[in-house]
Structures are given as structure tokens and as C-alpha cells.
Nucleic acid binder design. Sequence first.
DNA 1: TATGAATGAGGATTCATTCAT
DNA 2: GATGAATGAATCCTCATTCAT
Lengths: 185, 185, 185, 185
Amino acid sequence: MILEAAKAVIAEVGLGRATAREIAARCDISTGTLTHHFPSMDDLLVEALRSGSKEFTDRNLRAADAEPRAHDRLLILIETALPDKPEALRNWRLWLEYWARAAHDPALAALHSERYREWRGGFERAIGEGVATGEFNRVDVALAARELVGLFDGLCIEAAIGGQVTVREAREITLNWIDSRLIPA
Amino acid sequence: MILEAAKAVIAEVGLGRATAREIAARCDISTGTLTHHFPSMDDLLVEALRSGSKEFTDRNLRAADAEPRAHDRLLILIETALPDKPEALRNWRLWLEYWARAAHDPALAALHSERYREWRGGFERAIGEGVATGEFNRVDVALAARELVGLFDGLCIEAAIGGQVTVREAREITLNWIDSRLIPA
Amino acid sequence: MILEAAKAVIAEVGLGRATAREIAARCDISTGTLTHHFPSMDDLLVEALRSGSKEFTDRNLRAADAEPRAHDRLLILIETALPDKPEALRNWRLWLEYWARAAHDPALAALHSERYREWRGGFERAIGEGVATGEFNRVDVALAARELVGLFDGLCIEAAIGGQVTVREAREITLNWIDSRLIPA
Amino acid sequence: MILEAAKAVIAEVGLGRATAREIAARCDISTGTLTHHFPSMDDLLVEALRSGSKEFTDRNLRAADAEPRAHDRLLILIETALPDKPEALRNWRLWLEYWARAAHDPALAALHSERYREWRGGFERAIGEGVATGEFNRVDVALAARELVGLFDGLCIEAAIGGQVTVREAREITLNWIDSRLIPA
DNA sequence: TATGAATGAGGATTCATTCAT
DNA sequence: GATGAATGAATCCTCATTCAT
């Protein structure tokens, strides 16, 4: 699939170095065929970013929503997204490109905003459910979700580029946040 | 200055669309003059990213370190960096490009890692000082700094691209984290 | 054909002044089309030098080898190569560029060396045949070929640039060498 | 001296790659100073070719003319020019560039023609002297000089680029030519 | 539908040359 | 006389896109 190849190339070399030739070569098709299916290269790249992150988050959200206990939902969202798995790492790289480009491109910013809303929605539902059942403390659900997602994003970005935060630290800090904030003493 | 123009262009149109011609035009110089000072366009862009973020964080760190009280230090770091000021917004956009590119470029990742270490160091010093003087609770300083910076980064990124988090929310969540975690009851 | 245009341009203005634009204009194609077929300009120029001299010498060698008498073989090699015909003149100019560049470029030196070996091989075969049939004196074939080719090259270069040796003189001196050295009294 | 640096650069990297920057760097001067002395880069390169070959041949001609015996004169001309000495090798490389460029540049062709005339004049004087004193056979002096120089040039070019002719072979063939043609039985 | 040769605008970079200091 | 920053034309090359087959 062309989009799949595009995602792989973007994750590997970045949005700025992702060329039609390289993507076509991944699919073993000609650049002519590529343009036949995606008349605009720009649209292809944007769609790759969008669908790439959408697929990833949708799958994780579904997996989380299937869990009965709120704490397990959060664990699934976090564990599947932590960038120590190739697929998750690829996703964070796509997101980094997404963010960088959205900063200059209102259309992309809107798309990203929508996707981010869905992602945070998963955390909100889990926390809300936990609060409702008494599994969690009675926190401000929207605020807690904002904080948790912000914390998780900030840690994962740094972990994804191999910076000063390791995946292990990102996990521990995030889980510790849940324990100390949401779990009743 | 050429670097200043480069930073402005990168922040406005992104790393991928920053051309020598545009940067030269900003400075009212020819492209020949540009390459006379920066033989490699790539080096210029990287240096712009590096020095741009370094200047910004250094200035903020100095301002924060000049404050006597730990809480004020943190407030300064946060307030000056929140992306509701043009300069701070520009800085977050440079950082987004920095992160995105660092994901594919080990050399840039190393540079970024160093800068991030300094940035987090400012938070660590402030928190450590507060703990030492009894102004703050007796928390694990390194861990608290990691968490605070991760939270702040995650929120500011989203705020910087005009997404689902507003600057006001980012500020409140961050300050609330400080109050509830660091300030003794 | 692109290579043909490249050879013409090199012969006319020299290797150093042969530009992609000029070669493309000769073919009535765009420079984009040129690089589509020859991604590297350097490779194109080298290939033009190589194939140009190869075609020329191969054709002459075949024509010579078809002659039954050794003396006629030598006459053909010499007569077709003397730089008073446009094609032969062009070939000497390509060779001059070839030599000049081979002096600084080992890869080109190797290519040239191989071509030179073939060229001298034609003379060696002719002389060897003449010696075998008694048409020529019993000379050291390899040595005689070296001498004859060296003499012919040295004279033709000077004739090709319109220097102190005319084509007529080059021809007479070369043929006289054959008569006095190879033909039995 | 600027010209000396220019000769060295041309001999090392070729006429097409000889830049003002490199030549200036060799002299430890700025490109501004270079252009101050040689307003035209083209004139500098041409002058380097011209003076370089002139100095070399003049010195060798003077050394040869100082010898009393004709055979020794020829030996000196040949021995000093054979490209197994750095200076002689450099000279052949300058000549190759000279020839290549003269093929497209009438002005350079005229300069080269004059220099070649002087060079061949040295051989003519030596041969003429030998014939006059009876040291050599009664050959056509002009024709013999043309042949000898042609032969020597052709062999040395190939030897200079490290091709199919070694310096040893070039020497032997040339000396053998002298023995068999000029020396009485 | 698939191709891939052709395109040409746009990219960075090189370079000889100019000129104020 | 010497400098070196500034210049801008010219270089090769990349690339998304077009279109006839």
C-alpha cells in the first residue's frame, strides 16, 4: 500500500526528505503510478500523517475501551504507546512531524487537533469511568486527562528521540502520576 | 544577523521550507553573501535551531537563577516560556523542528539532548533549592523535575500549535502541579 | 543522442567549458531530461570521452583488420586517424581532454590505458602479420608498435592543434618510418 | 610567487579545477590580493601554463647547448624531460593542459606553437651540429628533429599519465631511435 | 490502469571579480 | 599594496508533476 510506504519513509527520514521516488520504490511501482493515485505529493504526505496516527490511536483506544477496569484502560493506553516498540516509535516520529508541520499549516493543525481530541478522549473516558465507579479519586476529569496526556506526551517525545528521558523513566513517572493522583490511599 | 533571519524563517515556514533565498532576502543580502558566511545551508539551519533555543533557555535560566525564592524561580521559567509571547512561541516552533529532525539525525539529537539537560537543570536547581530551604516538600528532586518538565513540554507543544490546549490551561495545570506537589499543605 | 552532443561540445569548447545547458540545447531537450538520463554530469562527460574514442578506434581497427596485406592495414589505421578529417580531428581533441584529465584522475587513466592498449594492439597485429608473412622485416613486433604509435601520437597531437606540424608532414614522417623500418630493402 | 602556486595547482588538479581560492591559499594570501596582481583569472592560468613550460624548456635547452658533443646534447634534452622526476612530470602535465586548451583557444595555440618551435629547435641544433661534425649520419635535419620530437612526445605523454608505456620504455625506444638513425654504423 | 520519459522550476553551492577599508 | 566581505551569475542536481504510450 502506498500510504503504508509513505508512513515508513516519513518515519525513517522525515517529512522534508520523503520523496515520491523513495515511496514509489518501496511499493515497487513507478513514480508515474504513484502520482496516478495521489495527484498531489503534498496531499499524500498529509494523508499519511493523518491516517498513520489515526490508525494507531484508534486501535489503542479500542483495546483500552474493551477493558472493564479504569486503571487497566489507562495502563493499556500508556503501554501500547510507549516508544520502545517499533510501531509505537514510528507513531511518535509521525507525530513529531505532524506537530512541526501543523505549526505552520492551519489545515494540518485542525486535523491534528481533532486527532488529539480523540486521543485525550480515551483518557477522559477511562478516568471518568474510574471516578464514577469509585475506583479513582473524585478528580476533575477533564483537567486530570489534560494533565496526564500532557505529561505522557512530553516524556514520550524526549524518549522517542533518544534524549535525556528513557522509556523506563517515562513509564514510571506516568504510572506514578496515576497512582498518586487517581488511586485512593 | 543571518542567524536571526534563519530562526525567523524556520519559525514561520518550517525547516523544510526555509530556503537560502528567503533567508538572504530577509537580511537584504545576496545568496552569495549568505554562503560566504555559511558555506553549508544545512549547517546554518542546524546552527539556527541550536543557537535559537540556547539563547532563549539561557536567558530564562539566568533570570530564574537570579530569584531568591524557589517558587519564584519556577514561575519565571514557566511564565517566560509559555507560548503566548511572540518570542516564546517562536522558540516552541524551533523546538518542534528540532525534535522532528533530531528523530532522524543523531548529531542533532545529541545537541538537543544537551540543551534539554540544561533546561531541565534549571528546574532541578529550583526544586532542589526549595527542598533544601524547606520551601518545598521533601520530594525526589530529579524525579520531580523530570515530571514537571515533561508535563510543561507536553502542554506547551499543544498550546503552541493552537490545538486543544490553551496557554491559559497550560499555565493553570502547570502551576497547579507545583502547588499540589511541591508546596507544603 | 545525448552522448553524441556531449562529444561535440567537448570537442568544440573543451571539457572544462562543456555544460549541461549547452549539451541539452544541442539535443533540443531540457536540462531536466538530460539529468534524467545521466544523473551525474561528470559521468556523462567521462562516458562521452570513453565511448567517443572507443567508437572511433574500434571502427578503424575493424577496417584495418579486414585488409589482407599488413602494409595496407597500417595505412588504413594511419589514414583514417590523421586529423585532416572532421571526425578524426574531433577524436584527437577528445583524446587531448582524455589525457589531460587522466593525469589527475586514476579512474580515467585506467579507462584510457585500456583503450590505448587496444589501439596499439591494432598496430601490433598488423606488424606481427607482416613479419610472419615476410612482408615486413624481422623486427621486434611489440617494440616497433610502441615506437610507431608513439611517433604517430606525438605528430598528430601537434597537427591537431594546428601547431608546428602539418597533417601532411605527420603523414609523410609516419609513412617514411614504415618504409624505412619495416619494408625490406 | 603566485605563478609558481598556479603551476603547482594546475599540475595537481588540472586546469578545470584550479581555482583562485586554492592558488591564493598556497601563497598564504587572500583572493583579493590575488586579483589585485592578476585581474583576470584566465590570464593567470594561461600565463602559468606559458611561463611554466617556457622555464622548463629554456633551462633544458641551455643545459643541452652547453654540451660540446651532439649526442650528449640529445641525451640531456631527453633525460631531463623524461617524466620520472617530479619537475619533469609536472611539466608534462602542464603541457597536457596546454594542448587540450590550445585545441579550443587560438591565442593559446599560438603561444604553444612558439614554445614548441623553440623546443624542437634544440633538437634541430643538436642534430645539425652532429651532422656537420660527422658525429651523426647525413640525415635531413629538420625531418629528423620532427620525427624525434614527435616520437618523444608521444611516448612521454603516455608515460606521464601512467599508461601503457613506462618511462624506461620511453627512454629505451628514444635512445634506440637515435642510435639506429643518427649514429653511423 | 500503469508506465516512465520528459519537464522546468527551484534547490544549494561555487566562483571570479569588485570595492570600501 | 593588501585585504576579505559582498556579489550574482552560473554551475549541477533534485523533484513533483505531466502526458503519450
